[in-house]
Simulated assay, not measured.
Amino acid sequence: MNRRNLLNRSLTIAGAAGLASVLDAQHTGPANTMPAQAETKPAADPEPHVDDIGKFPKCNYCGMDRKRFHHSRMLLHYLDGTAEGVCSIRCAATSLSLNLGRGTKALWVGDNAASAEIKPLTDAETATYLVGSSLRGVMTRRSKVAYSTAAAAEASKAANGGELADFDKTLLAAYTDIAEAVAMSRKTREERIKRMQKKLEQ
């Protein structure tokens, strides 16, 4: 292979990789993308759980409507007094990772034991979770649904399957699902580049 052909081949491969990057940037499906960190630090609020949807109408990381996802929404209150409203435990996991050294004062989650049209918040760390049931997940294929009482979680498990878990196990499941989504995204991107390279070489 002469130098010109080698150069053209290198540019072709680089072009394929660049195109794949553009395609990745244009893909906005929530199940396959990691949320971006918030750009501005919110003001301190001593009672962020009061009218939390009014204060935090959109997820601080993925931008999803927290009223629409009231049943899975979470609210994180950090020790410095600031709070972040998110759509789900997946985005809560992102917030906790990015703010690892700040410490939390309180964590709230939508209470699916309640019959209200908009689920009220309950203490996320004392809630019982149903993981991997037939209920639809938010930002993940494997659902994670919170209940303020173990009895309500048991009843939901009987109807929808899944496994009961405490907050720590549910958070671990969220991180596991994020890792699996990242691995799948990387694999899909590599396969896409290979397909484009093959087409360009034909």
Results as ranks from 00 to 15, higher is better:
residue 94 T to Q: 13
residue 132 G to N: 06
residue 155 A to T: 11
residue 197 Q to E: 13
residue 185 S to L: 09
residue 47 E to G: 00
residue 70 H to E: 08
residue 52 D to T: 05
residue 155 A to H: 08
residue 163 E to A: 06
residue 164 L to V: 10
residue 24 D to F: 10
residue 24 D to V: 07
residue 171 L to W: 02
residue 188 T to A: 10
residue 130 L to M: 08
residue 183 A to M: 03
residue 90 R to T: 07
residue 155 A to M: 11
residue 94 T to H: 14
residue 108 W to P: 07
residue 76 L to H: 05
residue 159 A to N: 10
residue 51 D to C: 07
residue 72 S to A: 10
residue 49 H to V: 07
residue 140 T to N: 11
residue 156 S to I: 08
residue 112 N to F: 08
residue 86 V to W: 04
residue 26 Q to I: 15
residue 93 A to Q: 05
residue 149 T to R: 09
residue 119 K to S: 02
residue 162 G to Q: 08
residue 78 Y to I: 03
residue 116 A to M: 04
residue 104 T to C: 01
residue 81 G to E: 08
residue 183 A to K: 09
residue 54 G to N: 03
residue 66 R to Y: 03
residue 15 G to F: 03
residue 87 C to K: 02
residue 100 L to S: 10
residue 33 T to P: 00
residue 30 P to T: 09
residue 193 I to A: 02
residue 123 D to V: 11
residue 148 S to V: 06
residue 55 K to Y: 06
residue 157 K to H: 04
residue 165 A to Y: 06
residue 80 D to Y: 11
residue 118 I to L: 09
residue 115 S to C: 04
residue 158 A to S: 11
residue 9 R to I: 15
residue 5 N to P: 02
residue 131 V to C: 07
residue 131 V to W: 04
residue 178 I to R: 02
residue 148 S to K: 13
residue 4 R to M: 10
residue 143 S to R: 05
residue 72 S to D: 02
residue 99 N to I: 06
residue 88 S to H: 02
residue 146 A to H: 03
residue 111 D to G: 02
residue 19 L to V: 10
residue 152 A to K: 00
residue 135 L to P: 06
residue 169 K to P: 00
residue 42 P to C: 10
residue 119 K to F: 01
residue 35 P to K: 05
residue 3 R to P: 12
residue 39 E to A: 15
residue 24 D to K: 11
residue 199 K to D: 06
residue 33 T to L: 09
residue 46 P to F: 07
residue 89 I to T: 14
residue 139 M to D: 12
residue 158 A to L: 03
residue 158 A to Y: 05
residue 191 E to F: 08
residue 49 H to M: 09
residue 142 R to I: 12
residue 70 H to K: 13
residue 16 A to F: 12
residue 36 A to H: 14
residue 5 N to M: 08
residue 110 G to E: 05
residue 127 A to E: 03
residue 74 M to D: 13
residue 92 A to Q: 04
residue 161 G to E: 04
residue 62 C to F: 07
